[in-house]
Design a binder for these strands. Structure first.
Length: 265
DNA sequence: ATGGTCGTAAGACGA
């Protein structure tokens, strides 16, 4: 049975519950992974999503910051929710689908502005977070698993609007890309989005600060869908729903667009 | 080189 999965940094699930509802109604993914819910788990409008055919929810939350959730049409068995680097942040939750596929949903630390761990603690925490991800997946090599989320790194030159301008900007520095690659190699993760769309500029995030995000198009691909090699071949139809970045009703948009993939499993 | 915009939650802080 094929199933469709999406990942979306929602930047407050309460403020944008109406946009989530719109995505669920118009696109009907079987599983939707959210990041930056920005609220405790009991404040997620779960009943609203249940009424749309998404009765299953696993989440980690905290007041004001971070927060990850998996909404599903299919039953979810909660597997895990790890506090890597012991930051006390709600940045990971994992659940298992009835077909035995484990879904990891991550919100990797953004890392602040200065790409130097001596001057910027947050940058060091970002690198350490990625190192702990690497060590985890090296120790327990995942099988039949999908990893999605806002990884806050745009690894490829064609994942950013201007590679030369971005190479010293947090999210695209070589040290971050190296750390992300190490996570990928440790788990054997396949970048499903780039498997399906190997060529060309591809973005999932555009800053709020641009006057006209669509015309300026200074985007980055920060949001990812990965899969283990045993199921990566089952993935197809990857897509980033750029128009969603412009949805301004019933609330203002998130600065991220959702990333989709379908798996024939 | 700087400032530009958001969300949370009540003044910054994080992105």
């Amino acid at each position: 049975m094929p199933f469709t999965l999406a990942t979306w940094n929602i930047n407050s699930v309460r403020l944008r519950a109406g946009l989530v509802e719109r995505l669920l109604t118009e696109e009907a993914p079987d599983v939707l992974c959210l990041q930056e819910c920005k609220c405790p788990v009991d404040k997620i409008p779960a009943e609203q999503f249940a009424a749309l055919g998404y009765p299953h929810l696993v989440a980690r939350g905290q007041k004001g910051y971070n927060g990850v959730a998996i909404l599903s049409k299919l039953p979810l068995e909660e597997v895990d929710g790890r506090d890597l680097v012991q930051l006390g942040h709600a940045r990971h939750v994992a659940a298992k689908l009835p077909n035995g596929v484990t879904v990891h949903n991550f919100y990797v630390p953004a890392g602040g502005d200065e790409p130097d761990r001596e001057k910027n603690v947050k940058f060091g925490q970002k690198l350490d977070y990625l190192t702990e991800m690497r060590d985890w997946f090296a120790a327990e090599r995942p099988e039949r698993a999908i990893l999605v989320g806002d990884l806050n790194i745009a690894p490829r030159e064609d994942d950013v609007w201007d590679h030369k301008k971005m190479v010293k900007i947090v999210s695209h520095t070589p040290v971050e890309v190296d750390h992300l690659t190490a996570v990928q190699e440790a788990g054997g993760w396949v970048d499903v989005t780039r498997k399906d769309i190997p060529e060309g500029l591809l973005y999932s995030w555009w800053s709020y600060r641009a006057k006209d995000w669509d015309a300026a198009d200074k985007g980055r691909r920060l949001d990812h869908v990965w899969a283990t090699p045993d199921i990566a071949d089952a993935a197809h139809s990857s897509r980033i729903l750029r128009p969603v970045r412009g949805w301004d009703t019933p609330s203002k948009p998130s600065d991220h667009a959702p990333v989709f993939a379908t798996f024939d499993l």
